[in-house]
Design a protein around this nucleic acid. Structure first.
Lengths: 219, 219
DNA sequence: ATAAAATTTTAGACTAATCTAAATATTAAA
DNA sequence: TTTAATATTTAGATTAGTCTAAAATTTTAT
């Protein structure tokens, strides 16, 4: 009934809705790599299917939002499987999970979740919604809002872009590490960290804004 | 480049080619649950893509055959995963594997195969081709060609039909069992077995033709 | 060997998803 | 507040995959 194409639109609208106050046709077009004309046309169909509330204010209905969360749930569970079970690296899994997220079988999703022992986050540290669409509360903040002298755990990244993840790998940064903030530069927002009590790492504000942390020591 | 639809046609032609001497438009239509008109049209496209040799004699090219074996390989590896790792029953996995078989990533397939420890057969006992498309040699025969008094191992089923598998479950028949042929009835081809030295089971010729065995004791 | 039956192909139409180009509407600036 | 720039929608086409109905071909049987 609902095509892979529609699922991808719903996912894009959900993600855009998380950050932007109002989602626009051109933002969806940009994200989907489609023309605005195609998006405009598709929004009509999404509206007819009861997946968005309104044509002018692009907001998901409860049904649309639930669907989005199911797709995100599947994506993040498959990413976890690929990294934990099949030994993929965290920057290799995105495009495979984009395919696996469309496989339809709620039993499969539940069995996979059980096999992975009900993970709260995926390999990027992003929270995995449960089967009712509820996200676990991780209370994370961007590194750019950290306080000097305090200790944090590196929890997630705000973007999946391959070269960004690669940059982190090169700096030796990995999820779950303990980071102590050595200093923050006021005028350019750059941050200096002590990673796992060993290495000092210097990060620009641009990078710091895309790294999410939560306060506290390691588990 | 090659759609899921085309992959399904290629798979259907491969399977039909295994049993029938010449594959017909109507046989493909029957198997795909499409009209003969659609099939005829599609065959033109398959020919243009170099996947079948000829329009009149429906035979896969080397490229088409390799593609078919890759899809079958993925299908059978995923079925094995679903049963062995996620505890599905062997009659529940077919429709999920039909989706998973279209996921494109040779690295994924190889990692999955490694995780499953290079299985030779899927949960139905069907051989899994390696990454070059070579099937392992299992030297199996249909039960209908067995000899009275001899001992065999139940290796595979010739069809995935849900009600057929269910019928087998009801009779207590499972892959890997040791079957001793008690007697074969000449006039109707029916067979009486001793299963695992415990139960006597009576099977019609229709069923016996769809059960594959290989000679020998259990491993 | 010809008629009847079955099979296959062609013709024309439909849907989903896309495009470009043009028209329309909205937002921002002078 | 009227113009200019930007954003969105509509119109008309295209492609892949499907359909039904009709035409053409091939096979089978008398």
């Amino acid at each position: 009934m609902i095509s892979t194409t529609i699922e991808n639109y719903i996912k894009a609208i959900f993600y855009l809705g998380e950050t932007a106050t109002n989602v626009t046709v051109s933002a969806v077009a940009e994200r989907m790599q489609n023309s605005p004309a195609s998006v405009s046309d598709m929004l009509r169909r999404l509206y007819e299917k009861g997946l968005i509330k309104d044509k002018n204010n692009i907001t998901l209905t409860d049904q649309g939002s639930f669907l989005a969360k199911q797709i995100i749930r599947k994506h993040r569970l498959w990413e976890t499987f690929l990294v934990k079970t099949l030994d993929f690296k965290w920057d290799e899994v995105h495009s495979i999970a984009e395919q696996l997220e469309h496989v339809q079988s709620s039993l499969l999703t539940e069995r996979l979740e059980r096999f992975l022992e009900y993970p709260e986050t995926d390999p990027h540290g992003d929270p995995i919604p449960d089967k009712d669409g509820n996200f676990p509360d991780l209370s994370i903040i961007p590194l750019s809002e950290s306080e000097p002298g305090k200790s944090y755990i590196f929890r997630s990244v705000a973007t999946d872009a391959k070269d960004f993840l690669n940059h982190l790998d090169n700096k030796g940064l990995q999820l779950g590490q303990r980071w102590v903030i050595i200093e923050k530069e006021e005028f350019d927002g750059s941050v200096k960290l002590l990673v796992d009590d060993k290495n000092e790492v210097y990060l620009s504000e641009k990078v710091a804004k895309n790294l999410n942390i939560c306060s506290g020591e390691l588990d």
